[in-house]
């Protein structure tokens, strides 16, 4: 009886320990535990601020009253806000296209170099991406400085009139895009270089046997093999470029005449500097649906291609 009792009571004592061990041994549990710090970081630094911004955007200027979507409908009536939308799209799309193009070319040039020299060039070309953007943008600001621009000094040396880099809308837009391209191209370059290195040589050999030209190899071998990495890199860069703050803030502060403002700088000016935090939150949230739609289509394409390849 006592033995029977012992046997009967033993499983509850052993089962949790065994269950726990089994649970701990499961790959998904380990994966969850390893990603937990990141999940907590995302919850604290992305999800919570996002939800809080959503809440703020539904309040009136003094943050004393719920006004629903009035901040958004108000923004739709503002001329300056539509200029900001236009400039943000122009800034992000043109900068990302240029970065992708330059990164693609640089990656191919680097890939073609012998591995000894390649490392040196790779290191040098990564420098713009490694330097904190606030510091490098300050250096650019000195180059563009209205009165003491080094560029203008060089231009005047060859008899060309000085250029109002930051003083006229067109040039100011060009300048902020140029700095963003300079800063972001190495990211594309390194991602594309990694992708290029993973394309099996046999594919090129087979293409060569079939008599493919360089362009045909690029179009029918390289490009299809890189499509996923191109899509993801473009998506990441578009998100970061849309949310850019420091370059515009340091170079132009949104001027002249608000023509270089992007969502983040305009949100800062409206929300923090002018004391309308709910409206600032609404401006900053405006880029979310734009990016969400783009992200959904891009990731769907990536998934589809991954399944096809599998």
């Amino acid at each position: 009886m006592s033995q029977g009792t012992l046997i009967a009571s033993a499983p509850p004592a052993v089962a949790p320990r065994g269950g726990l061990r089994r649970l701990a041994r499961r790959n998904s549990t380990i994966a969850f535990l390893l990603t937990l710090p990141l999940i907590l970081l995302i919850l604290g630094l992305v999800v919570y601020p996002f939800l809080y911004a959503l809440y703020l955007s539904t309040l009136n200027k003094r943050m004393t009253r719920f006004i629903g979507l009035e901040n958004f409908t108000f923004l739709f009536t503002r001329e300056t806000f539509w200029n900001v939308v236009f400039q943000s799209v122009l800034f992000a799309v043109s900068a990302v296209v240029l970065k992708a193009l330059i990164g693609f070319i640089l990656a191919h040039v680097l890939h073609a170099l012998p591995s000894k020299g390649q490392r040196k060039w790779r290191g040098m070309l990564l420098v713009p991406w490694v330097v904190p953007p606030a510091i490098s943008t300050l250096a650019w600001w000195w180059l563009f400085d209205p009165s003491y621009s080094a560029f203008n000094w060089a231009l005047m040396g060859i008899g060309v009139d000085p250029v109002p880099w930051l003083g006229q809308s067109g040039w100011a837009r060009f300048s902020v895009i140029l700095v963003n391209v300079w800063y972001g191209s190495p990211f594309f370059m390194i991602m594309y270089l990694a992708a290029l290195k993973s394309v099996p040589d046999q594919l090129y050999e087979a293409a060569a046997i079939d008599g493919a030209t360089g362009w045909q190899k690029l179009r029918h071998v390289t490009f299809p093999m890189m499509r996923n990495i191109i899509s993801i890199t473009v998506l990441f860069s578009l998100i970061v470029t849309f949310a850019n703050f420091d370059i515009v803030r340091i170079l132009t502060n949104g001027g002249p005449q608000d023509t270089t403002h992007v969502f983040a700088t305009y949100a800062f000016q409206v929300g923090i500097q002018s004391g309308d935090i709910p409206l600032g939150a609404s401006v900053s949230l405006f880029m979310f649906p734009l990016l969400a739609v783009f992200a959904i289509f891009t990731l769907r394409g990536v998934n589809k291609r991954s399944k096809e390849m599998a």
């Binding site: 400085d145 209205p146 109002p164 880099w165 003083g167 006229q168 100011a172 502060n253 001027g255 005449q257």
Partner: peptide, 11 residues
């Protein structure tokens, strides 16, 4: 100067 439209507080 024609570039005063881009001057900041230090210019």
């Amino acid at each position: 100067p024609s570039d005063v439209f881009s001057w900041d507080d230090a210019s």
